[in-house]
């Protein structure tokens, strides 16, 4: 079943066409990767899907529903949660609290329940606490839940951001260059985490430069170049595709 469907999505910045009539179907389950050289329009594509930018034309469907040009919080509510190329943690909060914020969508407490601390509120807080600790364990950060997020090493910050996104229980998780700035060792751990997330039933769509990570984790790869989709298919097929080789190595090698 198709979970996310982009239909002729276009976005221009002045004279530049960052995303040019891209059609893309992301199947439910598994890992899909979007690759392409720098400036190919990958991040713009992510911003369009997550609502941080709006397309000039085209439609974006999620689980059959038109989510084109909805604001980010509405798209998150629909079930798409993203991470950022430059990690966007709540630096002022503890590791544990960062994940608790991620639970926002699936909890209800408002102003009055916070003031009155009803039994329901307390029970909800216990559930949030348990879920946050479980997710910390999932990404291997359970050692220091009270540490300020800003004190974590960069690789740990990436993992924390992913765990926080999972707390929102997305149907589709968008990862924007999750391996950027990670060591080879950390990338390997990340690769395992991404497979585990897909194994738990969350569909993953990722943008990535690290080809080893992409080849190891993705079931399907879409290749963008100058805003256009030039190839799509399983890793083995995309690797052999002449337009992809041309885009990555220059036309002379094709």
């Amino acid at each position: 079943m198709t979970l996310l469907s982009l239909q002729a999505v276009t976005r221009r910045f002045g004279g530049l066409v960052a995303v040019d009539a891209v059609d893309l179907d992301v199947a439910e389950g598994g890992v899909t990767a979007v690759i392409g050289p720098n400036g190919a329009g990958k991040t713009t594509l992510f911003n369009l899907v997550s609502g941080f930018q709006t397309p000039d034309s085209g439609r974006i469907l999620f689980a059959g529903e038109d989510i084109t040009a909805r604001p980010p919080e509405a798209i998150a509510t629909a079930g798409i949660v993203r991470t950022f190329q430059l990690v966007q943690l709540f630096q002022n909060l503890s590791v544990l609290e960062n994940i608790k914020v991620g639970c926002h969508l699936h909890t209800q407490g408002g102003l009055w329940s916070a003031l009155l601390r009803t039994r329901r509120t307390r029970r909800e807080e216990q559930e949030v606490e348990a879920r946050a600790r479980e997710l910390l364990q999932f990404v291997g950060l359970e050692a220091a839940p009270e540490t300020e997020a800003s004190a974590l090493a960069y690789g740990q910050q990436r993992l924390l951001e992913i765990a926080r996104s999972l707390a929102a229980r997305p149907r589709l998780l968008l990862l924007d260059e999750p391996a950027a700035g990670l060591s080879a060792d950390e990338t390997k751990r990340l690769s395992g985490a991404i497979r585990a997330i897909a194994g738990r039933g969350t569909t993953v769509l990722l943008i990535e430069h690290d080809m080893k990570l992409v080849m190891n984790t993705a079931d399907t790869i879409a290749v963008l170049d100058f805003g256009r989709k030039i190839a799509e298919g399983p890793p083995a097929m995309v690797r052999e595709s002449p337009p992809v080789i041309a885009a990555y190595l220059g036309v002379g090698h094709a």
């Binding site: 997550s50 941080f52 604001p71 980010p72 919080e73 998150a76 509510t77 949660v81 993203r82 991470t83 950022f84 966007q88 943690l89 709540f90 630096q91 002022n92 909060l93 609290e97 608790k100 914020v101 991620g102 639970c103 926002h104 969508l105 909890t107 209800q108 407490g109 408002g110 102003l111 329940s113 916070a114 003031l115 601390r117 509120t121 909800e124 807080e125 949030v128 926080r164 996104s165 929102a168």
Partner: peptide, 28 residues
Amino acid sequence: RLRASRFGRALAAIAGSEDAARALGIDV
């Protein structure tokens, strides 16, 4: 009590990163 609640966490999240808060479904 406000600070230790879902409400307070949403406010603290906005102080930390409005974009990340919105990406997690918080109506900033």
